[in-house]
Computed example of a mutant assay.
Amino acid sequence: MDRHDGPPPAPELVIDLDRVAAAFRTLTAGLPGVNVHFAMKSNPHPEILALLHALGCRFEIASATELDALLAIGADPAQVLSSNPVKPIAHIARQHAAGVWRFAFDSEDELDKLAAAAPGAAVLVRLAAHQIRSGVPSEGKFGVDVDAAVTLMLAARERGLRPYGAAFHVGSQMLLPHAWRAPLRAVAYVMNKLAAENVFLHMVNLGGGFPARYAGRTPPMTDYWATIGAGLAQLPYPVAAVCEPGRALVAEAGRLRANVIGTAVRGGRRWAHLDVGAFNGLMESLETGNQLRFPASDSRGSARRDRFHLTGPTCDSQDTIMFDVELSADLRTGDQVYLDGTGAYTTVYASRFNGFDVPAVRCVTGVAIETSDNAAYCG
């Protein structure tokens, strides 16, 4: 049957659960003694959550709704971190009632809410991270300087809360392992200042930011541990260490299959329009100014190659995924384009803008998905 006869298959995101498990084992081996709490915002698919729970992974949430998904798989709320520094008071109350007892904050207003809705809870102050540009810049919204952090922790004690720890986040897709150096020095400063006030912390939250492989290699986990391990060793006294990876655990497990719905030549450049774009699955294309490069291949696999601008199905010109992507020169309507590294922050951001469907999600095990090793890295 000709590829243009009949409707094309619906766009689909396939998640290789074996790769999720392998990523978890790699991360935990690379960060010895650091408890991993999956940032479920990156991909809260129930099968992913259940797998990670079975492997002994813990979780980090931003809302009571995310906690509901964890309760559904039997996760222990006492092992969950509530890391959103600003939360609706109703969400605080629901989380606390369910058994969550550790909450991040970075303001006196949040302390007032926590004291009212989660009396006696343990709190982690969010520090502003040293500004080093990450692959997916995400910092700047939260965090305070070290002296403000000390003041806030003493204020927490006055409100009957437990000053429990310090947290920071260096930015998503961080390719510079030394980015953790300055924040850990800041944590040490806060710990020393609080110790003088007879307040001793129990935890440092290293945040997320550990990268996935997109259009190139990432530093080995040993490089990250060299910085993190040294920083932890230099703290004034031992504390528990946790991290909150999302992308690093699920991104490389995903392959997005999209259909070519049209091609065109404009201004001498070739365009391929797909039935999945920035607004219904690939919002990080916009967030990064089209700098995040998903390894791409296509169903034709032709030896003759050409470069295409990949764009989505909507009538918005911003709905463009990547520029100058090498694909089969004879790519046409009805073909499929495969985008690897799409297991994180895809369907969770998706909307039905202009009425186009979001990709279906299918999890698989025991089936090797041909991923980036066989795709074109576009840089």
Score class of each variant (00 low, 15 high):
P183I: 05
I92P: 00
G140E: 02
D106S: 11
A148W: 08
R159E: 01
V170H: 03
A121N: 02
A186G: 13
P177L: 13
V136S: 14
L184P: 00
W180L: 04
D109A: 15
S107Q: 12
V125H: 06
A179E: 01
H169Q: 04
V144K: 04
L154E: 13
L152C: 01
W101A: 15
P119H: 11
P163Y: 15
A115K: 00
F168R: 08
V150K: 06
V144N: 06
P88T: 13
R162N: 11
D106Q: 12
W180D: 01
V187W: 03
L124F: 11
A155H: 03
A156F: 01
F168L: 06
A182C: 10
M153Q: 10
P119E: 08
L127P: 07
V187K: 03
M174I: 07
H169N: 07
H169A: 03
G140I: 03
S107D: 09
P137N: 14
Q173V: 08
R159A: 02
V146G: 11
A118L: 03
S134I: 07
R181C: 08
A118N: 06
L154K: 13
G99C: 09
R94A: 15
A148M: 13
L124E: 12
S172K: 11
A116C: 14
A156R: 00
A179F: 05
A182S: 10
A93H: 14
G135A: 06
G135M: 05
L127M: 11
L161P: 00
V123R: 04
A155S: 10
E110Y: 12
A93L: 10
A121H: 03
R102L: 14
A104H: 12
